[in-house]
Nucleic acid binder design. Sequence first.
DNA 1: GTAATCTATATATATTATATATGTCAGGAG
DNA 2: CTCCTGACATATATAATATATATAGATTAC
Lengths: 291, 291
Amino acid sequence: MNMKQLRYFYEIANEKQITRAAKKLHIAQPPLSQSLKALETRLGVQLFERNGRQMVLTEAGKVLYEKAKIMFQHIDETIVEVKETGQGMRGTLAVGSTKSCFSHVPQKLKHFLEQYPNVRIKLIEGDSYFLTKQLLEREIEAALVRLPIEMNGFQFQHLPPDEYVAIVPNRWLRDEEQTEITIEQLASIPLVLLHRIRGIGQFEIILSKFKDMNLEPQVICESPNVDMLLGLVNEGIGATIIPKASTLKNNVTDAKILQLKDVKLVSESAIIWLENRYLSKSATHFIELFK
Amino acid sequence: MNMKQLRYFYEIANEKQITRAAKKLHIAQPPLSQSLKALETRLGVQLFERNGRQMVLTEAGKVLYEKAKIMFQHIDETIVEVKETGQGMRGTLAVGSTKSCFSHVPQKLKHFLEQYPNVRIKLIEGDSYFLTKQLLEREIEAALVRLPIEMNGFQFQHLPPDEYVAIVPNRWLRDEEQTEITIEQLASIPLVLLHRIRGIGQFEIILSKFKDMNLEPQVICESPNVDMLLGLVNEGIGATIIPKASTLKNNVTDAKILQLKDVKLVSESAIIWLENRYLSKSATHFIELFK
DNA sequence: GTAATCTATATATATTATATATGTCAGGAG
DNA sequence: CTCCTGACATATATAATATATATAGATTAC
């Protein structure tokens, strides 16, 4: 079925006259007569009664008229939805974040949803390796990860730098008011550290700091999961060194957050996405928020 | 929006490749590329990601794909419904009948509905004048009426002829076994007779029979409504002369149906419809049953 | 009965859709 | 790494379709 023919038919039905409909449609009358005839021939059905100069819908014509009305509505809706989706005003945006970067997410997400209330967010969590794999498989469009990572094929936008802090169980603290700790002191406490499953990352950077000072830390546990580490710390099993933003409101309970005194250890994180690939407007808008 | 473009888009989405879609659509590849581009331009939205040789739907493309699927279904349904309505397989058929002709209706209607189960019948009742008016106003497409009527502008099909009978209350009957009555006898009984609101009809024909025999009937009441007449007869107020088919199963209770002995009085009735006007296929089918 | 007005038809023209030929780019084999 | 294959994109030519103009036929109003 041809949309133009259908719209012409619809206008004739509204105007009950071919000539008047033609004027409304800004075309001449003969092509409109022909168009109607062509439609009737294709459907094998008479759509109008022609009594002299009166054009009255037949039963079949009435059916088509009602159906056409619905169809036009549907088309209009479709156009709006498709356009809005294309402009990132609507649809689903899938993004990922490592646990240690998640602290950046809530605020940005809030701003994003204020601006684009019809966009639905799909959030997934995982380590950098998993997230880059998800990116390549197009399961997500952007991911927040800790640097360094292998950046080949990705574009990125740095997040605000994030100082490392030590989380030390109360039993190793000298006094209540302590706010700092040295690397040397940390070397004497059992450590549980972040370590991604594969590739180099923060783990190696932290160890190098000890090595620079000829210290040998007691690493008793490593895990890619910040929550697990903090669980161990809260149990008093050991201390950890993590980016400050990884400490959320309620995940440090029986330990204290201390600044590193004699070293400047900064964690770089970034939002990354695939290079030279289609990026949805929603994703573009989301990434924009981090600039 | 253009249906052809939409169907092309849909096929590309299915085949995930323009070349393959073009083969399925029996067109060359370049016009298909152009068609897609034109659609994207018109919507102002990218519908596919083109990564090398891969064609993957964008978010907006997915939206359009799903909407298109629904739209095609709707179109298919519409075509079937419109065609069926045009062929009289579906829709509403409005017909009218006088009360006195109604006895013809139930059986025919049964046959009709067996053959066209998706057609809905709208039945109205009224006198000939009302029904012809309804025909001219296109409220009904056919009507069963008693003849004679003014046939200008109508086509008709005769119904089986119908003998007049007398309905006489028990109090005027000589014996239980009586099955006939003469005009002369009827002239001595008060009569309640059918008489349409305007125009000539059966009333005049019946009176002429009395006049032919130099008899003066005692017409105490006339009405266009058979049921009213029979109500009066059943109350013993008078006798009546009506076509036999007007007596239904349960509307003659305290009176007896007697044949007219010395005159042959036959009522002609017909199904009538507008001449030189569009007649729906349903109506055509219905009228066909009376041939 | 005649003028006015509407639909239908015939033919010409403009627009659009499609085909052919060719260019460009990405991915895979040697 | 280079060449080859296969896919999409572009340019141009041709076919199909839609539209316009002119005109005939038909019906209503005066």
